[in-house]
Design a binder for these strands. Structure first.
Length: 484
DNA sequence: TTTTGAGTTGTTCGA
DNA sequence: GTCGAACAACTCAAA
């Protein structure tokens, strides 16, 4: 029934692009008219691209399940294999006599090097290899200053992007994915053990997220119709659900920035202009992170500003554990860290607060915070995560100035004035009124008692005094400026 | 060519 | 209570 009889198949290698719609590699493969072998490789041993964190593995498992269903409903069969990508591809090439391999690009240092080597190798062996952009509005090498060098400041970068010809219209999902007639062995998804068992920390994830392409497009539609208008004002309040929550879907490529761009550009969205521009500029920040990563491939683990290289970070100890578990004694910080642990996600405003707290109040290396986020975020992204951490630490490009030290109490009063967010994630504080919930150590003894709080027992005292920590950080960071 | 002003997300201090 | 200044150094584009 398919055009597959005797024809050599094309392998479509899925990586960070787990979708059928607007998938250029898949679309190009379908256009060839050849039978397809959709393939995903779990390459999590050795020196491959960074091994996925726990939360991401949970998401991946769900996402692959959805992708497999979407492919099957179109007549195809997703092949799942675990191992070193080069070796798995070799096996499948020789087993199927495939004539070509198509994929969408990745942008991390290791990923680029491996893709390039693989492309050379396969091409030399007579294979056709084609790669595509499925992840960005503009390839990082196409956006540059008038002198041809890459940007280091967001605003001019985004202006330059907006001045470029807009992205093409998204590609429709193919109706049919003609399957190769050869039976290619596939792993059972369950055998990869991507889901946590003991302890199963993912229970809170299940009711919040719908991983997969269908969940992503549903979320986008809902956001545009219900939240876009209030986005500019509401996006900073973590108790209100006014952000898009699309980040994990973007991280796994279940939706493309191009699809988002065109959906937001529809004429009937024009009434929410300020929200629309604000939202699209968040997509711009993602683009900027990839731009920086591409042009500074070591930023994942190296300070963009090298004068920070000698910074005397504190050795992580009890305070680091308190930060990770949400027991710093600062309610907003603790609520945010617990939101991360319980849901695999944290509101953007809170990411800045907890990041600033770790780096400035505790003087702990941003890389440790970045690793914790990498492990616990369902939206852990190879560009966004390190770029965001370098921004808050002050060592990045276009970074927050070193004297910008968030006051966790002021931030709390400003963005969670009634303490709803705190009460949700720190229920042991829920009996405090909104006057005292932001700094329980200042609450009168009677109020604490009435709220059932025994400071130091049921909720910790602050692990560090804000005024002291601020002064210490300013001094430490000022020394960094001198050593240039 | 050089100069100038502005740049995601803040806080504190003193008038 | 409100308000402006100060808290660096660097990037980038416009004047």
């Amino acid at each position: 029934m398919s055009a597959s009889t005797g024809e050599r198949p094309v392998i479509v290698w899925f990586r960070e692009d787990l979708r059928i719609g607007d998938n250029p590699a898949l679309d190009a493969a379908v256009q060839t008219g050849s039978p397809l072998i959709p393939l995903f490789i779990l390459d999590d041993a050795g020196e491959g691209p960074r091994k996925l964190g726990g939360a991401s593995r949970w998401w991946l498992s769900k996402s692959l399940h959805g992708l497999g269903q979407d492919i099957r409903s179109r007549g195809g069969q997703l092949v799942l294999r675990r191992g070193r990508s080069e070796q798995v591809l070799d096996e499948i090439l020789s087993a199927t006599n495939a004539v070509a391999v198509f994929w969408n690009r990745r942008y991390g240092k290791v990923a680029i090097a491996r893709d390039k080597a693989l492309k050379d190798d396969l091409t030399n062996r007579g294979m056709e290899v084609r790669s595509f952009n499925a992840r960005l509005l503009h390839e990082p090498w196409t956006v540059c200053k008038k002198d041809g060098t890459p940007f280091r400041v967001f605003t001019p970068f985004w202006k330059a992007c907006l001045a470029m010809p807009g992205p093409d219209r998204p590609l429709p999902a193919p109706d049919r994915l003609p399957s190769a007639e050869i039976d290619v062995p596939s792993d059972d998804l369950g055998s990869w053990a991507l889901q946590p068992t003991k302890p199963n920390w993912s229970l809170g994830f299940e009711k919040l997220w719908s991983p997969g392409e269908t969940g992503a497009s549903g979320l986008l539609a809902e956001f545009l119709t219900e939240k876009l208008a209030g986005y500019s004002e509401g996006r900073d309040r973590p108790a209100d659900d006014l952000t898009s929550r699309l980040s994990p879907h973007l991280a796994f490529g279940e939706i493309s920035p191009r699809q988002i761009h065109w959906a937001a550009e529809r004429p009937d969205r024009r009434s929410s202009d300020s929200g629309r521009h604000k939202f699209l500029s968040e997509i711009g920040w993602r683009e900027f992170a990839y731009h920086l990563l591409y042009h500074n491939p070591d930023l994942t683990h190296t300070n963009l500003q090298s004068r920070f290289d000698g910074f005397g970070w504190e050795k992580p100890g009890d305070t680091f554990d308190a930060w990770k578990s949400g027991h710093t004694g600062y309610p907003l910080v603790d609520a945010a860290m617990r939101q991360l642990w319980q849901t695999g996600w944290m509101h953007n405003r809170c990411r800045m607060v907890v990041g600033s707290f770790l780096v400035k109040h505790l003087l702990i290396d941003w890389r440790l915070g970045e690793e914790w986020f990498w492990d616990t975020l369902v939206d852990a992204d190879p560009a966004n995560n390190p770029v965001g951490w370098q921004w808050i630490a002050g060592c990045g490009a276009d970074a927050a100035p070193y004297f910008r030290i968030f006051n966790p109490v002021l931030q709390s009063r400003k963005f969670d004035p009634e303490g709803r967010y705190i009460r949700h994630f720190c229920p042991e504080l829920s009996g405090l009124d909104s006057k005292h919930i932001h700094e329980p150590w200042k609450a009168p003894a009677g109020d604490l008692e009435a709220a059932g709080i025994d400071l130091g027992q049921t909720y910790p005292r602050p692990v560090v005094d804000h005024k002291f920590a601020r002064k210490r950080a300013l001094e430490a960071f000022a020394r960094t400026q001198d050593t240039d």
